[in-house]
Design a protein around this nucleic acid. Structure first.
Lengths: 213, 213
DNA sequence: GCACAATTCAAACGTTTGTTTTAATTCCTG
DNA sequence: CAGGAATTAAAACAAACGTTTGAATTGTGC
């Protein structure tokens, strides 16, 4: 087994366990054992447990954010060329579509989507600061575009509605692929990704555009 | 200091640290030290760390759920008396209003609202199973009522839209009172609870009622 | 004020944690 | 094929964890 193999195996295993068990609740011994690697390999390749977490996040968050920003910028460009404000639906779709599609276009990325879905809700500083730092730019772009689409809405309302959107999106990201007990005791219905994207976009668009009373 | 004092102080402190640092990431030594209690007091009063978590959850979840169910049942009764299906807005308001108002009507319950907001997203079994067990009934009632309000909507769509709602609500619950870095680096604007309830209810109502395309 | 239960306390238990160390092994280049 | 760098391996480290113990202390009913 070459170096690249070990490094990848540790990353994949860590991604899975961080997503399902949480960062602090997953030990390096669990990860290295499951990855058939030596315990010391983590510190050799990543320096520390926190370094491993950062590597896990960055590996996929970087390309995903690039994808989302491309989509968002395209929406802005289209709108400007047509001399109109961007549509709320187009903005939110540009944010949601790459995120949920990323799951099925990249092997093993289900765990990652669950992980960053959780990271949004994380109150623990280790995970949250790391995550916030790397998603700031994308979120800023999203907020700016929504401001252009809804110029009459106050900054406060805009902020909170964005929180509602992010809450719905990240909760959905966590739930896909993870069995979730719904009231009657059955499991979540199987989710068709395209349908889920459409339903979620529809939902948050209607929410963003709701008339304040 | 009498028994009741120690027990209460441990509960309050545990609630705070569980909410902000998570269950596994908070040690009993941190809690007991902050509560000016002896380490062994936790096992004497609650049996174990998990027992303490359950006590923290139950202390407030029980009355909160009673409150929510009262509101939900009132909505159903009103609708039946008037011979019409319940309105989506009334249902969601009946669920959201007691939850967010609970914060300011009960001293120290801010931490609890943050805690159960996080519990929704929790993938760790210790916390999640405990939580799910005690909120099942309320969620079931909520789902039933939404089904009555939107009889034309399929069970699958209804399920996922409820997930969107719960995502937005729990994310909001986590964010209130917890400083959250928004893109430009500033903090969350101060939230007026009544206004927040209104905005959130408006948002999720519009989302639930959006026409499926 | 005495006796009995309830509670608090300090200390130690055995595990598990992330990390470090040092030696053995593998890999690649000249 | 030799030699130096890169990687893996086993073992030990100190620190922190939840839990248990048994004695000291406090509170309560007679």
């Amino acid at each position: 087994m070459s170096q690249a193999d070990t490094k990848q195996r540790i990353l994949d295993t860590a991604e899975h366990y961080f997503a399902h068990g949480g960062f602090h609740n997953t030990s390096l011994r669990t990860i290295t054992h499951e990855a058939s690697a030596n315990l010391a390999a983590v510190h050799y390749h990543f320096g520390s447990k926190e370094g491993l977490l950062e590597a896990v996040l960055l590996r996929r968050l970087e390309p995903l954010n690039q994808l989302r920003e491309q989509h968002l910028l395209a929406v802005r460009t289209d709108a400007r060329q047509q001399g109109r404000p961007p549509a709320v639906h187009d903005i939110l779709h540009a944010f949601i579509e790459p995120t949920l599609h990323y799951r099925e276009r990249h092997d093993g990325s289900q765990d990652f989507i669950t992980l960053i879905g959780k990271a949004f809700l994380e109150t623990d500083d280790t995970v949250r600061r790391l995550f916030i730092r790397h998603i700031e730019t994308t979120l800023r772009l999203l907020l700016d575009l929504l401001g252009e689409a809804l110029p009459q809405m106050g900054a406060n309302d805009l902020f909170w509605r964005l929180q509602f959107v992010l809450g719905a999106v990240s909760h959905t990201m966590c739930r896909t692929g993870v069995p979730f007990l719904i009231p009657q005791g059955s499991l979540a219905p199987p989710c068709n990704t395209d349908n889920l994207i459409q339903q979620l976009t529809l939902f948050v668009t209607a929410g963003m555009e709701a008339d304040p009373k």
